[in-house]
């Protein structure tokens, strides 16, 4: 019992007493920083308890219906190859959507990125407000855009295209302006000294420095867009997701398995290609 008290004292005294945190050596003394580990642990436990309470955790139901999940999974693993012809159209549409969204968004992002770069636009009021507006637009996830656009442009591929374009626009603008800010501006001065105007100097001295990175960013956002385009159909905005959600609601898990198999192959193919190109660009 006495040992326990001593142990507790050892653990807790650094939290209340500075003397307990001070170690005396022969010629000097050191005060250890305030120990915060226990507070972090306490905070995490509190959040955990609150989170469990907030999210209606029902482990009984989870484990009770677990065999349900195994049944679904085993059916997913037996893909229905006869479903292949029916999914080619939506699959191509998915790729079309991601290509179109990437192209539109990344072209629109260029002027915005230039206006967000502090080394090109010297006025902090301009690039600051452009960046702030962009970060507001960027907070809304692409699927939320798609869901909202359903009501605006109607069901179908167009909503998906616009949503993916918005997403690409925001992410390319952000990544691209960060690249522009790393540009070496000395060549720009050199070209200006030859009598070139700002546009010409930008074309000659800045563009070659950023073009490779820009294309790399575009390819990266294309990779993300393929994944988004695959699920954008769940909210009704075109592509393979529409078919996926339809097959899931009809409990045709063999068909779902087939779609997932093809999707897996397509995503891996596109990512490998894109990564190869990005390595070449670097």
């Amino acid at each position: 019992m006495r040992k326990l008290i001593a142990l507790l004292q050892e653990i807790f005294s650094p939290y209340v007493s500075k003397a307990a945190r001070t170690y005396k050596a022969k010629d000097f003394e050191v005060t250890a920083p305030y120990p915060i580990t226990a507070f972090i642990a306490l905070a995490l436990v509190t959040i955990f308890v609150l989170a469990v309470e907030a999210s209606n955790i029902d482990l009984v139901q989870f484990f009770g219906n677990l065999n349900n999940m195994w049944r679904i999974l085993s059916r997913l693993l037996q893909p229905n190859f006869r479903f292949l012809p029916r999914m080619t159209g939506p699959m191509i549409e998915t790729i079309q959507l991601s290509v179109g969204g990437t192209l539109i968004g990344s072209v629109l992002a260029v002027p915005v990125a230039i206006f967000s770069a502090s080394n090109i636009v010297k006025a902090s009021a301009i690039y600051g407000s452009v960046r702030f507006a962009m970060s507001l637009i960027r907070t809304i996830p692409v699927l939320v855009y798609a869901a909202m656009l359903m009501f605006i442009v109607g069901m179908g591929a167009m909503a998906g295209l616009v949503a993916l374009s918005i997403f690409t626009f925001t992410i390319v603008a952000k990544m691209f302006y960060e690249v522009i800010e790393t540009v070496d501006m000395a060549p720009y001065e050199a070209i200006e000294s030859t009598g070139a105007d700002k546009v010409q100097a930008f074309r000659v001295a800045v563009l070659p420095q950023i073009l490779g990175s820009y294309l790399s960013i575009v390819l990266y956002s294309f990779e993300i867009n393929v994944r988004s385009a695959a699920i954008i159909g769940f909210v009704g905005a075109g592509g393979i997701g529409l078919l996926l959600s339809d097959r899931i609601s009809w409990r045709q898990y063999e068909d779902v398995g087939m779609i997932l198999l093809v999707l897996f192959a397509v995503i891996i193919l596109i990512e490998t290609l894109s990564r190869y190109l990005r390595r070449r660009l670097a």
Partner: peptide
């Protein structure tokens, strides 16, 4: 030197002609 990196020597020299 203030050359433009990531592009060829010839393109750098041609930069003087852009004006």
């Amino acid at each position: 030197f203030n050359l433009v990196p990531r592009t060829t020597v010839l393109k750098n020299v041609l930069g003087a002609k852009i004006a």
